[in-house]
Structure formats: structure tokens, C-alpha cells
Simulated assay, not measured.
Amino acid sequence: MDHSKHNHHNHQGESEVKTNVTYDNEKISIKLEDHEGATPELAVEHEKEMHFILVSNDLEEYYHLHPEKVQDGLYTINQPLSDGTYQAFVDIVPEGKAYQPAPNTVQVGTGKTNKTSLEREDNWTKEIGGKKVTLEDVKAKASEAVPLDFDMHGEKPEHHLGALGHVVIVNEEAEQYIHVHPDSENTTSFHAHFPNPGMYKIWAEFKFGDEVYTYPFVIEVTE
């Protein structure tokens, strides 16, 4: 399997596909349209046509969802959300079209959520559901390949969506989206490219048994 082609989603350039995300009565709807007004065909990527990442403006809430196509150009999924302001990133691979995920603002209810200022952390080991994961020391520089190596403390995660793990990264302004997959089929090591210096939040997803656990980390990227 060639992982070099799709192990990193941070495509540059003009997107030829527009996304429109709405929320009503606990249902998220995503409409897709290319620059000519037609419906784009989507390639299956890591077992799904669409990976949908939703984060609250303060980066406290995180959802990785897989909406289903209900008609050409329309995907939906039911997901109750608390009142607040969210940014949605539609992670797709349109056939023959340039595309880069950009934030879609979603307002739920009337309560606004402010953007955040991320603080550097020194807790690189997180335990969730009795499963411990450590992010090894990261020296992140912008525009370089940055290794993200996760120590699973002797436990091997299950394959989840075609990989041993998934890492989603968003900058503190909730404007830049990066989704990386492992370097190979049987590793929990990743490489990410950060376009700009600044503070970024990482959500690392690993599956143990039937549960997917999400481990959050904050890193600083330097020039």
C-alpha cells in the first residue's frame, strides 16, 4: 500500500469544491458543490468517503464523524451538540478536483464560544479508560517534517479506519487543519508538516477493543 500519497492532508492551493455545513434539530448537513456548480465524486479514503471533524472555537470539544450520503452532493449525520460556536472541517478527496479543508463556522443556539489561547503543556502522558499513551518529545519547526511518535506502553491498538491511529491537528485560531496517518500500516509513528509557527492542538485517536480513545496534546511550532 502506498502511504506516501494520502498520509498527510494539508493540500495547498485553491479549492475547487465548496462546502456548506448547517446544523438543525441535532442533525448536521454538508452540501458539496464544485466550482462549476456540479456534484463532485468522492474517493474512498481510509474506508470512508467523508471524514468530518468538528471542534468548538475554544478547542475543548472534538468530534470525528462520518456523515453518509443521502443524495448527490448532500451528506448528513445525527449528532447532538451543546450550544456554542464550532468550526467544521470536511475532509474529502474529490475525484480530479483540487481541495483543501477550510473552516466552516457552525453556530448552535445563541451562546457564542470565543477563540482560545493555547498554553504549553508538560504532561506528555495521558490516560483514558485505563489506556495510557505518551507523545514522545516533539521539536516542531514550521515547514519541516515533524515526527510525532506515540508510546503505547506495551499495548497495540486495533486497526481503526485502515490504520493503527489517526492524528488531527488544528491551530489555536481553529483555521488550519492537518490530518495525518501513520508512517506505515503497523506503526504509531506519524509525520506532520506545520505551515506556520504557533500553538497547535493535537487529537490522537487509537482504538482499544471496541472503543476509540482520543488523546489531546498541545505543542508549540517554532520558525
Rank of each mutant, 00 (worst) to 15 (best):
A102T: 11
G84L: 08
W124I: 10
Y62T: 04
A98N: 15
N114M: 08
T85G: 04
N114A: 15
V93F: 11
K97D: 07
S143E: 15
S143P: 07
I30F: 00
N20R: 09
T116D: 08
Q107R: 11
K126Q: 14
S82N: 15
N78Q: 14
Q79H: 13
E45C: 07
N10T: 09
K27V: 15
P103V: 04
I53E: 00
D2L: 10
M50W: 07
P103K: 05
K115S: 15
N123D: 14
V70K: 01
A88T: 01
F52D: 01
S143C: 09
N123M: 12
V17T: 09
I30Q: 00
K97I: 10
T134K: 14
V70P: 08
W124N: 15
D58G: 05
V17D: 04
E47H: 03
P103A: 03
I53F: 01
D2F: 15
T110A: 13
A145P: 13
E47A: 03
F89N: 02
V138R: 03
D2K: 14
E61K: 10
E33Y: 00
Q107C: 12
N114F: 07
L54M: 08
G37S: 07
V93P: 03
T19F: 08
H51T: 02
S29G: 02
K115F: 15
V133F: 06
Y23V: 08
K18Y: 10
D34G: 03
L42E: 05
E127M: 07
I28V: 08
D34E: 09
P80E: 06
T76R: 03
V93M: 10
I128M: 13
S29Q: 06
T76G: 03
S4F: 14
G130R: 12
E61F: 06
V21I: 04
K69A: 10
H64R: 00
H6C: 12
L65R: 02
N104C: 04
H66T: 06
K141I: 06
T105D: 04
E95P: 08
L74E: 02
E60P: 02
L65M: 03
A145L: 14
F52I: 07
T85D: 09
Q79I: 10
N114I: 11
N25I: 11
K5C: 03
N123I: 14
E45G: 13
N25L: 04
P80K: 12
A98M: 14
K115I: 15
L81R: 04
I30W: 01
H51F: 01
D91C: 04
P94S: 02
L42F: 01
